[in-house]
Simulated scan of single mutants.
Amino acid sequence: MFMEKYKIIIDTFGSDKGPEAILEGAKLILNEFDNVDLIIVGDKDLINKYDFDFSRVEIIDSKGTITNYDNPIEAFYKEPDASIFKAFEAASKIKNIGLISAGNSGALMVCAIKYLLNDKRIRPCMAAVLPNMNKSFTCLVDTGASIDCGPNQLINFAHLGSDFMRYLYKIDSPKVGLLSNGAEPTKGNKVVKEAYKLLVEDKNINFIGNIEGNKALSGLCDVLVCDGFAGNQVLKNSEGMAVNLITEIVKYAKKNKQEEVIMPLVQYLMQTYDFESLGAGIMLGSKVPVMKCRGSSGPKAIRNAAHILLNIAMNKSLYDGEDKR
């Protein structure tokens, strides 16, 4: 039977754990997905030390990296041979189903605008698909790529998030919420209040109103819109609270010698709220999908990011076949 082959581009720099963690993730991808070939961007000498099937691997040599302390725009001109820039350049020229990077978020946005801006010329944004209380998922957008946003930009986020959930999750009319400090239309800062009015007027968006932070992952909406600063806080606070809660449950179980009863619950919670198992954030609005892994990502996150790209390429739900709920 004919098996369609897909190509994924991997930027090996950017991880706090070094390029080795990314390359170990690349090994997992090649071992588990026979229909995937890789273009690996990074130190050629290091990459060649790995026992890859090099009939399925193309190397783009680069020893330059952009740190989180570098100004992305300045770096674009000072370090044009950095791996992240070479990876995006390749993505714009070579047929592929997506790019994976743990690099500087600002640099990713600069590259997306330079190389992968879509035909509508809309600024891309970063989204994360997170488990909610309805045993489904909420698309949180933006999660850090655009810290300061105007109201019209938030409307674009709503459209991109809605299209994403409609395309992948087959939700005919995704419910859109606007993150605010109160449910009433009068709550929020100036930008949020103006965005609220625009969302109400937009007939192509199924806007359900403001969503408070404590209900961000309640399942009330399929798409939660906010600026990148607020979205990043929701993302990291959710992860932090999940870790703290699971840790306290484990402590209680051990203290009261109830591991046998409680540990199945712990395992369920760890699987559901293991943010690394969800892979990465995804850039919406670019010509090809870009998966942004966190700096702390290990091999499993890289492998799961590739799995998401495969599901997108094959027009499936993000976690089809690997339900985390």
Rank of each mutant, 00 (worst) to 15 (best):
A75C: 12
A112S: 15
C226M: 13
L117E: 06
G144Q: 01
L318S: 00
Y169V: 06
I22E: 01
G64T: 02
L269N: 10
V234L: 14
H159Q: 10
I66D: 00
I47R: 00
K287R: 14
V290D: 07
V200P: 03
D34C: 08
L160S: 04
Y6G: 04
E260L: 10
A158G: 05
T65F: 06
Q153T: 12
N206M: 10
A75V: 06
E24D: 14
D34E: 14
G295P: 07
A216C: 07
D70Y: 07
K49W: 03
G103F: 01
N96D: 05
K93T: 09
S277M: 12
N104K: 06
V141G: 00
G150Q: 10
I73L: 15
I94V: 14
A82W: 00
E260C: 06
S15Q: 04
I211P: 00
V141W: 01
V250D: 15
A158V: 03
I113N: 12
A301R: 01
K17M: 12
G25F: 00
D37I: 01
L284C: 11
I147R: 05
D34Y: 09
P151I: 10
D119V: 08
I22N: 00
D70R: 10
E20S: 14
K197F: 03
K254I: 09
V250P: 04
V36S: 02
L160G: 03
G177F: 04
R121M: 11
T12Y: 13
K114I: 08
F88L: 06
G231F: 09
L310Y: 06
C125Q: 04
N71V: 11
F85W: 15
N68H: 12
L117W: 06
L46V: 12
T247M: 14
I100H: 08
Y273S: 06
F275R: 04
G106T: 11
E212M: 08
N132K: 01
F207N: 05
N204A: 12
F275S: 01
